[in-house]
């Protein structure tokens, strides 16, 4: 089981780091530019750009936006891999051998996804870094002002809130696509349809949970 979990961490988390870093970097940059372009009142300090970037990236973009991306990348991988095993009777083969197929296929994915907060932590850092680069090299705010904004009225509970959300989203990303793959019926065409359905439902569940959790934790 340990080797299965490590394999899943490699495929689900480590294998997604490239896209997570890429998206976080540019989203951080875009948030900074958008904020800077909308703060054209000379009485507002430039440090607000850093503040807005930090809040946006930590509270929403890193945990929620990244989870939607992961629902597409990891979710469709989970559904299609388990669905293909269903179609090609590999799951029946496991059952015949006396293996608890649900436990064998899904449990390692759930455990592996508990590493997902580490990926989101990196997304937070890279997002803020992207914002800093956009601010400084785009000429929107001096480095000192941006960093001052980053440190302004920092509430560590916001990071805790983001990680609580992330853990729950991780569970959703592992289980909803697994359900759609494991209980699918049909052939290769249905595997594709199940992947799409899994992505849609995972995204819907994440969006709804995001609202409920925000209301419960911060409201």
């Amino acid at each position: 089981m340990r080797s299965l979990i490590l394999k899943e961490i490699d495929e689900l988390i480590y294998g997604s780091m490239g896209i997570i870093i890429f998206i976080a970097f540019f989203i951080g940059g875009v948030v900074t530019i958008q904020t800077a372009l909308n703060l054209n009142n000379p009485f507002l300090p430039k440090s607000l750009i850093g503040f807005a970037t930090r809040q946006s990236v930590i509270l929403e973009f890193a945990p929620t936006f990244t989870s939607i991306i992961m629902a597409g990348k990891v979710g469709s991988y989970i559904t299609s891999s388990i669905g293909t095993m269903r179609v090609t009777e590999q799951i029946d083969a496991l059952e015949v051998m006396g293996v608890n197929s649900l436990n064998y296929l899904v449990f390692p994915k759930i455990i592996a996804m508990f590493m997902y907060p580490f990926a989101v932590a990196i997304a937070m850092f890279v997002g803020v870094l992207g914002g800093w680069i956009a601010a400084v090299f785009g000429g929107y705010a001096p480095s000192g002002e941006f960093i001052k904004g980053l440190q302004m009225e920092f509430e560590s509970f916001h990071v805790t809130y983001a990680f609580i959300k992330t853990l729950i989203f991780a569970f959703v990303i592992a289980t909803v696509p697994s359900f759609h793959g494991f209980f699918m019926k049909g052939g290769a065409l249905e595997v594709g349809k199940a992947s799409t359905t899994a992505f849609v439902w995972t995204s819907v569940v994440i969006i709804i949970l995001n609202y409920i959790l925000t209301q419960l934790i911060l409201g």
């Binding site: 095993m85 590999q90 059952e95």
Partner: peptide
């Protein structure tokens, strides 16, 4: 039942080998 299953071998129509 799990023990009994371990006494069974199955060759599936499409082989069902783990890819």
């Amino acid at each position: 039942r799990r023990d009994l299953r371990q006494e069974m071998g199955m060759v599936f129509q499409g082989s069902a080998l783990f890819d």
